[in-house]
Amino acid sequence: MVLSRNKLYSILIMACVAGYIWVCFNMVNKQSVLEPVEVCFIKHFTNIPCPSCGSTRAILSLTKGNFNEAFNINPMGFLVAFIMLFTPLWILLDIVAKKNTLLTFYQNLETYLKRPKIAIPLLIIIMINWIWNINKGV
């Protein structure tokens, strides 16, 4: 997909809005009027958690300030929270300044991440996190 500036920004904003709605929904839905909604296919079908299962719970405990607990649930929650917090700000800055720094950053990041030197260590980290996830049974 060739991403133009506006397309990328609208995708990101929509994703962030969806993320915030999801987090709010989970906050309100504590006492579980519904069964805790399970969205992860891998976990649903195989009972094995996927690498990012538990991110939502990690973010929820982050909002309460429990950094250690969040780290223990899933460190990926930090990354997701970070992205959700800063992308809207960055997009806002870009729109105000009429620049496209985020687009350039995104494109550079894509080419950067495709390098084997970077991609393989990241893959290993994700795998380790995944194994940890399975072990603690998130």
Partner: peptide, 30 residues
């Protein structure tokens, strides 16, 4: 699909990461 591997294979690394971090877009994107 929920790990975003399909997007990585296409070369859309950014979208792939997005898919990986969110359990495949909460299952809907998958």
């Amino acid at each position: 699909g929920s790990l975003g591997i399909d997007r990585f294979m296409l070369g859309d690394t950014g979208l792939g990461i997005g898919k990986l971090l969110t359990c495949g877009g909460l299952g809907i994107w998958t």
